[in-house]
């Protein structure tokens, strides 16, 4: 892929993930558990990972988290986002090559689990309330559902996009 094309695609993906992130922040939480959300912006991270590469996806994720926190939540939101995002990114990088294309959603679920656990650990450290650990099961369950959803979305999107963009 030519350099300019890659740069343009990265900019486009970053913009798309920011839009998705900001819109998602307006959706009220479906269940009263802190940390449960769809994580739609992860669709873009996954697509970038498959189409552009892991390093590029990491850069897009970093810019999205930094700018997304500025738009919606401030410093404390940034800490939770980066804790979850970094762990999810690490896990998805490690597992991406292990699975065939039709199992991209598994990578996404594993990433979502890592994301929620990262946020939970950050929350326990910040609030010094160890009983927050009791939220682990519900965060794990929600990660399976939301991760499968975003993963399937990313999987079908990359299949369509490959023919037009790649």
């Amino acid at each position: 892929m030519p350099k300019t094309r890659k740069l343009a695609l990265m900019a486009m993906f970053t913009a798309a993930s920011l839009i998705v992130f900001v819109i998602e922040a307006q959706i009220p939480a479906p269940i009263p558990v802190p940390g449960v959300k769809l994580g739609l912006a992860n669709i873009v991270t996954l697509i970038a990972m498959v189409m552009l590469g892991r390093r590029e996806a990491g850069l897009i994720l970093l810019v999205r988290i930094a700018m997304g926190s500025m738009f919606t939540g401030g410093v404390s939101a940034f800490i939770f986002s980066i804790a979850g995002g970094a762990l999810a990114y690490a896990v998805m990088c490690l597992t991406l090559k292990l699975f065939p294309e039709k199992l991209l959603w598994v990578v996404s679920v594993l990433g979502a689990i890592a994301h929620n656990l990262g946020q939970l650990i950050a929350a326990i450290i910040i609030t010094k309330t160890s009983s927050l650990m009791l939220y682990a099961p519900v965060l794990l369950a929600s990660a399976v559902v939301t991760g499968a959803f975003t993963g399937l979305a990313a999987m079908y999107l990359t299949q369509r996009l490959d023919k037009r963009v790649g």
């Binding site: 009263p32 558990v33 802190p34 940390g35 929350a123 609030t127 309330t129 009983s131 927050l132 009791l134």
Partner: peptide, 20 residues
């Protein structure tokens, strides 16, 4: 929306305000 906490166990948490 987390309701009333009455037993030792799952705490109420307001993450943006770092309150538990």
């Amino acid at each position: 929306s987390q309701g009333k906490v009455s037993k030792a166990g799952v705490p109420i948490v307001c993450l943006p305000h770092k309150l538990t």
